[in-house]
Design a protein around this nucleic acid. Structure first.
Length: 275
DNA sequence: GGGACTGGTCGTGGTTATCT
DNA sequence: AGATAACCACGACCAGTCCC
């Protein structure tokens, strides 16, 4: 399988192609792909979705992706290394939120006003690649940061695939859980019940009926996903990561991790980094 | 010596079945 | 939709061991 690397904080380029230049690529970076024009399909891992003008895709370092194009298509490609994202100070745990987009073959922008904003940003970025001028690199940096912020606010309102309910309240509850995933004290049945006007005693069965899994299962699997990413893409010590996720200590974090993954956090990190 | 890991106890809070 | 109660899983805390 082809593997691509970048050796600078970010890269921006315009592509006009009628077939995907590389199939099933693996990255060491995050990649935003904006569809300027074209028709075909976007394939991430095993998931295939039709693409359309104005879509913005996010491919994480764990994804393999490719395009199956049926016409001449134009793309704006933005590659950002994990170090750049880790050092971004504007949004807490930005890389974890972006990482959550893993496996999404669909556009990550769901808000109609944001779609327009992304389109304008993409247009500006294309211009910087086609007309080299002084400070273009600094300009690109600002545009990319704006793009990341818009992507993040759309991703934080992303709902699980199992969630087929049209009940707006459950969508709000899921979004609330995602926003407060680092603060479990805000995720008790009492707090959520008070906030969304449901009896704490009823929250459990309500969530299960709407989502097909218990609220605790959902919170646990989401935390695990973020925790695994933190282990893989940061050099923080186990204790520091445990603290970040509001575990009382690494002992507790390790117990939690081992129970669900079958190996300790450090063993997981070692095993994954050998691959 | 510091970081990583294990195991035990206890209290809290979530799940679930049942009922109104 | 919501309340109740029993059960049990989880989190907090602590003591101790292992290992680089």
């Amino acid at each position: 399988m082809a593997r691509e690397n970048i050796y600078q904080p970010f890269e921006v380029f315009y592509e006009r192609v009628d077939c995907c230049p590389l199939q099933n690529r693996l990255f060491n970076f995050f990649e935003f792909v904006f569809v300027i024009s074209g028709e075909g399909y976007h394939i991430v891992n095993e998931s295939k979705n039709s693409l359309k003008e104005g879509d913005l895709y996010l491919i994480t370092p764990e994804d393999t992706h490719s395009f199956d194009l049926t016409s001449l298509s134009e793309f704006l490609v933005i590659r950002i290394n994990t170090e750049y994202i880790n050092q971004y100070n504007g949004i807490n745990h930005l890389e974890s939120v972006l990482y959550y987009a893993s496996h999404l073959a669909t556009s990550i922008i769901t808000d109609s006003e944001d779609k327009e904003l992304v389109k304008q940003l993409a247009h500006c970025l294309v211009q910087t690649t086609q007309h080299p001028k002084t400070y273009n690199c600094d300009l690109q940096r600002q545009y990319i940061n704006a793009m990341m912020i818009i992507a993040t606010r759309n991703l934080t309102s992303y709902t699980p695939q199992q969630l087929e309910s049209k009940d707006e309240r459950i969508l709000e509850i899921v979004a609330y859980i995602q926003q407060n995933i680092y603060n479990l004290k805000q995720l008790t049945a009492q707090v959520i019940g008070d906030r969304f006007g449901l009896a704490p005693s009823y929250i459990g069965s309500y969530f299960f009926n709407q989502c097909g899994e218990t609220m605790q299962q959902y919170i646990t699997s989401y935390r695990l996903k973020l925790l695994k990413h933190r282990l893989l893409f940061s050099d923080y010590r186990i204790g520091e990561i445990a603290q970040e996720f509001y575990f009382t200590d690494e002992s507790h974090a390790n117990k939690f991790f081992k129970k669900h993954e079958g190996l300790s956090m450090s063993a997981f990190r070692k095993a994954q980094r050998k691959l």
